[in-house]
C-alpha cells in the first residue's frame, strides 16, 4: 500500500522552507506594530537563537514575548493580552516547524492570563509584576535543564553503555554531569545525518574522557545489542506522550523495543504540547521527506533545512521521561498534559 498523505502534495509545492534567521526579507505579519510603536518579534527571536546555541525554541519564544510585553505601550490588560496574541501568531507563522514554539507561546499566554485577575485596577503595577514574573518564568524554564541533569545522572551507573541519537541539550547535560562525576560509562553515538549532531556530541564527550563510539545511522539495529539503554531528547511531547524528535528516533525506538532496551527521553516540561496527532503524517509540520516527483537534479534524498526532518515516536516505545519534575511514565506525562486543559 502506498498511501501518500495528501499533505505531501502541498509540501512539494512550497518545499523552499527556510529558517527565519537565514531569511532576511520581512514578510507580512512578522513585524508586530501598533500606533504606539514597533517591535520586530521575529528578528528578536532569531537573534536570541543565533546568539545562544544552548537556547531552545520555547524558551526563546517566551523571552521574546516578555520582551514584547516590555516594549508594548499597552494601557489595559486586554490590550496587552491581544498584543501577546498577535505577537505569538506572528512568531508561529514565521517558522516552518512551530510545534515547540507554539508550546512556549501557549505557556506564556496561560501564565499571563492566570495573573490577570490579581489586581485589574492598577495596570502599571500589574504590568510591572507581569514583566517580572514573565522573566522569572523564562529563567526557571532555563534552569530546568540543570535539574534534569541532576535527576537523570542516577540512570548512568558504572559499566553502562548508552546509545544516544541526535544532540539534545537535556540528554547531553545528563551525560556531561555523569562524566564530571567520574561515572565509567560508554556511549554509542549515532552520526545523525545530515546535520551530524552525533559527531559534535562525540567530540564534546571525548574531550571529557568518555569512551565514545560513533556509528552510522544505518547501524542502529546492528549495535542495539551492545547497549543497555537509549537516551534521546524531544522537540515536543504530545497529549498521549508521543514525541517528535530528530529523524531516526523512531527506528531506534523500534529496535530498542525489539531487544527490550530501555528508552529514556530527557526533556523539559515546557515542551509539553496539547495536541494529538495520530501518526507521522499527522504531525503539524510541513516537511518534504517522501517525494515521488523530486525537482530536477535531485538524485539523493530530499534536502533538509537547517531545522532538519523530525519523526514521530509513539508512547509505547518509551519507558520513561526524565523531566525537571521527576521521572515520569508516558501515562503520567499524558495525565499532566490533559490536566493543563482544566487549569
Amino acid at each position: 500500500m502506498f498511501n501518500v498523505h495528501p499533505a505531501h502534495d502541498r509540501r512539494a509545492r512550497n518545499s523552499s522552507l527556510t529558517h527565519p534567521s537565514t531569511d532576511t526579507s520581512p514578510a507580512p505579519g512578522i513585524v508586530y506594530s501598533t500606533a504606539m510603536g514597533q517591535f520586530d518579534i521575529r528578528s528578536y527571536y532569531s537573534r536570541l537563537l543565533s546568539e545562544d546555541s544552548t537556547k531552545s525554541m520555547p524558551i526563546a519564544a517566551m523571552e521574546s514575548l516578555s520582551a514584547l510585553c516590555d516594549a508594548s505601550k499597552a494601557t489595559t490588560i486586554h490590550e496587552l493580552l491581544s498584543s501577546i496574541e498577535i505577537g505569538s501568531k506572528a512568531l508561529i507563522a514565521s517558522v516552518p516547524n512551530s510545534i515547540s514554539l507554539t508550546a512556549g507561546c501557549a505557556m506564556f499566554t496561560k501564565f499571563i492570563s492566570a495573573h490577570t485577575h490579581d489586581d485589574p485596577r492598577d495596570f502599571g503595577a500589574f504590568k510591572k509584576k507581569l514583566q517580572e514574573n514573565g522573566h522569572l518564568f523564562a529563567q526557571s524554564a532555563r534552569e530546568a535543564r540543570f535539574k534534569i541533569a541532576a535527576l537523570g545522572v542516577g540512570m548512568l551507573r558504572d559499566g553502562e553503555v548508552v546509545m544516544v541519537h541526535g544532540y539534545s541539550r537535556c540528554a547531553v547535560g545528563i551525560l556531561k554531569l555523569a562524566a564530571q562525576r567520574n561515572v565509567r560509562f560508554k556511549v554509542i553515538v549515532t552520526e545523525t545525518r545530515p546535520s551530524c549532531q552525533g559527531t559534535k556530541l562525540a567530540v564534546e564527550l571525548r574531550a571529557l574522557g568518555v569512551p565514545v563510539a560513533v556509528i552510522d545511522d544505518n547501524a542502529v539495529a546492528y549495535a542495539m545489542k551492545k547497549c543497555r539503554s537509549v537516551l534521546i531528547g524531544a522537540e515536543s511531547i504530545f497529549a498521549d506522550a508521543s514525541i517528535i524528535n530528530v529523524m531516526g528516533t523512531h527506528q531506534i525506538a523500534l529496535a530498542a523495543k525489539k531487544y527490550h532496551r530501555k528508552v529514556y527521553v530527557a526533556t523539559e516540561t515546557h515542551k509539553f504540547v496539547d495536541n494529538f496527532p495520530l501518526d507521522q503524517f499527522d504531525i503539524p509540520i510541513e516537511q518534504d521527506v517522501i517525494n515521488f516527483d523530486p525537482p530536477a537534479g535531485f538524485d539523493g534524498p530530499m534536502p533538509q533545512t537547517e531545522l532538519g526532518f523530525v519523526d514521530y515516536t509513539e508512547p509505547q516505545f518509551i519507558d520513561a521521561f526524565i523531566t525537571e519534575v521527576g521521572l515520569l511514565t508516558p501515562d503520567q506525562v499524558a495525565e499532566r498534559i490533559v490536566a493543563m486543559r482544566f487549569q
Binding site: 497529549a239 498521549d240 506522550a241 496539547d274 494529538f276 508512547p315 501515562d331 499524558a334 495525565e335 490533559v338 490536566a339 486543559r341 482544566f342
Partner: peptide, 11 residues
C-alpha cells in the same frame, strides 16, 4: 474536552 489517550480517560 478534546482528544485524549485512552489511558487518560480516568484523569
Amino acid at each position: 474536552h478534546g482528544c485524549v489517550a485512552p489511558k487518560s480517560v480516568a484523569s
